[in-house]
């Protein structure tokens, strides 16, 4: 099959923000033998190509276009990739994006299938029954064996903000070398930072956030970097805590310092990556997510 990521609604800079969401899925699909393409605007191939759109439709243009194509004589296949907690008001009731939730609800009845990387409940929404939880797993194509000197003790693989910045500063005050990806760095800088760091620090952006960020953990795991996580998630995503050094928020600084200063930190990161590789598979997860009738029709 051909999976076509239609990313008009993220162009240009949003394409960088969704990279860690899209790339493991694309690589997992490629591992299963599928063809991956990317496109924008009216580059919307008809059935049997699967057009995958990534949620964030504050601008309704893409949803309008999907609705228009649904009404045409040509058959199309649309899949939705969702990546936020439906109940997180800091996302779906954000005053800068007043139409985001509304257009998500509009698109659900229009899609053929949907994958959510967050295990939140879509059951109450029209079309929500088409959404399935998609877990991240190991993809051989994303494995990185960095050779750079590990000169950064702690890396915030995220933007900073009011909750992470005090931790960033406190670690620096303790004498650790600390850096951050700020959420918007291009690959050549982001991957270099990952390859240079001893520990990735994984902290939620607000107290109210219910779900961990699987993409952050998976990026660090593929790079073979040890992770120190704030542990709070009790959903199925918590299975990823098996691959981190988890603790509560109050103990994060001590845990980061201890792990980063361990002479075995590199071996820890690599051993954890091997465990992740042995126990999980993005391709397997995707195969399971493609068990619906629409995929049976596409395969034919």
């Amino acid at each position: 099959m051909r999976f076509h990521f239609l990313l008009t609604n993220h162009y240009p800079f949003g394409c960088y923000r969704i990279e860690d969401i899209v790339v493991p899925i694309a690589a997992g699909l490629a591992e299963l033998g599928h063809t991956i393409t990317y496109g924008f605007d009216d580059d919307i191939p008809p059935w049997p190509v699967v057009n995958l759109v990534v949620e964030n439709f504050n601008d309704p243009a893409v949803v309008d276009e999907i609705a228009r194509r649904r009404g045409s004589d040509t058959r199309y296949c649309f899949g939705l990739l969702a990546h936020e907690d439906l109940d997180d008001r800091t996302v779906f009731a954000h005053p800068d994006y007043p139409y985001r939730r509304h257009n998500l609800e509009r698109v659900l009845p229009l899609i053929d299938f949907g994958w959510s990387i967050i295990p939140c409940d879509y059951g109450g929404l029209a079309g929500g029954e088409k959404m399935r939880f998609l877990e991240y797993g190991y993809v051989p194509a994303l494995r990185r064996d960095g050779v750079l000197p590990r000169d950064i003790d702690a890396l915030f693989y995220s933007d900073l903000g009011e909750r992470r910045l005090p931790l960033f500063n406190a670690l620096a005050q303790r004498g650790l070398s600390v850096s951050a990806t700020f959420g918007v760095l291009p690959d050549y800088m982001k991957l270099e930072l990952l390859d240079r760091c001893r520990v990735v620090v994984d902290v939620r952006r607000r107290e109210s956030v219910r779900y961990l960020t699987p993409t952050r953990l998976v990026a660090a795991l593929h790079a073979g970097v040890a992770i120190v996580s704030e542990q709070y998630d009790t959903s199925p995503l918590a299975r990823l805590y098996r691959y981190v050094a988890g603790t509560d928020h109050a103990q994060l600084l001590d845990m980061c310092e201890a792990v980063a200063s361990s002479p075995k930190v590199r071996e820890l990161g690599i051993a954890t990556r091997e465990l992740f590789a042995a126990e999980t598979s993005m391709a397997r997860n995707l195969r399971a997510a493609m068990s619906g009738t629409v995929f049976a029709g596409l395969a034919v």
Binding site: Y11, P12, F13, Y16, V23, I36, Y38, P186, D187
Partner: peptide
């Protein structure tokens, strides 16, 4: 388009 990230740019070039 001048602004695309690697994963899209390389995909386009490879095709």
């Amino acid at each position: 388009r001048g602004y695309l990230p690697d994963y899209i740019r390389y995909n386009l070039m490879s095709r």
